[in-house]
């Protein structure tokens, strides 16, 4: 599938700016997102290609602005909903609850 993810050779994206002594994870939520990667593979049985397919469907602006583990979130959400493990409404409700300070 052609799309924004196909970055090879694209111009105008600027310098690389490697971070010195970079930690494995920058934020705690990234650790949880990473852990979910392996955990969801186990019970959904989806493939790496499928995992990427959901990432490649991210709207281009979100794709370029979002960080790596945010891309993964789109993929988890897409796959978990497709396989019927969660529903969009269930997820949105939980997000709203957490945003309002609920636990």
């Amino acid at each position: 599938m052609n799309g924004i993810h196909d970055l090879g050779g694209m111009h105008g994206l600027g310098p690389i700016n490697p971070e010195q002594n970079e930690p494995v994870f920058h934020e705690d939520w990234e650790k949880r997102a990473f852990g979910l990667f392996a955990a969801t593979f186990v019970f959904t049985g989806y493939t790496v290609d499928e995992f990427r397919h959901y990432i490649e469907k991210i709207p281009p602006a979100h794709y370029l602005e979002g960080s790596y583990y945010e891309h993964w979130l789109y993929s988890f959400e897409g796959a978990l909903i497709k396989y019927g493990h969660i529903t969009r409404d269930e997820l949105d409700a939980r997000i709203a609850q957490l945003q309002s300070g609920g636990h």
Partner: peptide, 19 residues
């Protein structure tokens, strides 16, 4: 916020016994 999205996913999946 991605931190909220991750917590939402993890909490639902944990409650369902999937992870």
């Amino acid at each position: 916020d991605p931190a909220i999205r991750v917590r939402a996913l993890e909490s639902i999946l944990t409650e369902k016994g999937l992870i």
